[in-house]
Amino acid sequence: MSLQVSELRVHYRTLRGDVRALDGMSFELGDGEILGLVGESGCGKSTLGKSLIRMDGRMRHVGGRVVLDGRELPIADDRAMNDFRFKEVSLIPQYAMSALNPTRKIRRMVGELLRSRGAALDAAELERRMDQVGLPREVLDRYPIELSGGMKQRMVMVISTLLDPSLLIADEVTSALDVSTQKAVARALLGFRDSGYVKSMIFVTHDIALTHHIADTIMVMYAGRLAEKAPADALVKAPRHPYTRLLVDSLPEVGVRYAERRLEGIAGSPPSLLDPPPGCRFRARCPLAGDECAEEPPVAEVAPGHHVACWKA
């Protein structure tokens, strides 16, 4: 097992109290596995991504552990986490378009970043990887503003994986791109895994269709909790959780664009995470809800590798 997350609780401090963005998440990620992490806005998927590499100032680690390759990640300790960042855990942020320092040429910035992490710049390796994602070498002698959005995105992908991290978090990397570029990015990410640049990957998105293309496993989150986690095919073709079913049913066929809009198309809205209601959190919107749903459903393994948190599954 490459990554083990158990009972992770992370809260956001707000004026009106703690928002329980992650409320007891447990899952595992195997070597070489690509996990698609799916859910509506505000379900906690971005929080999960951030928690694994760098929590922002308003986030608070309340409980639970994260173990990567047998070592516990000190996710609450910003300083201690530095040893793991980039080398063990790395990130392709959703703001990749603006992630590069505007006043440094790329080559110099990469060199300075690597040196600050005690690594030397292997120019040949860097260029090989740029070739792999189809970036011309001249890019290195340009300022970010001289690159197109897609180029910046690919450059960030190359930079983030330069130190061959064990875990890569790709946070909504495709949401700002058009379909053909989305596919290219997804292919490049697959290539990174196959070339062994990264051992495993969490692909955070709200696009189930795209996830299906590259992920081995898909995990659906709802209101800060795990709803369903299964091998990609099983999840898309035979979903067990009513929420997942609604998500998948709303896609006329896999591969259709605008999956995001469909995702939002389920009637009702998720519960407030300030003071979530007891029991199953999907209850209010669930067509199958019954009396037992007043109690919180445990995560059960209904088939090998297929986990569902629902009484009706």
């Binding site: 990130l91 603006s98 992630a99 006043t103 300075e112 600050s116 983030s160």
Partner: peptide
């Protein structure tokens, strides 16, 4: 607070470098 600083922090770059940028 900007994106490039956040990115560098996420990659564990030291505060010195981020401040210089």
């Amino acid at each position: 607070e900007s994106d490039y600083s956040t990115y560098l922090s996420a990659l564990g770059a030291p505060a010195r470098l981020i401040r210089r940028y």
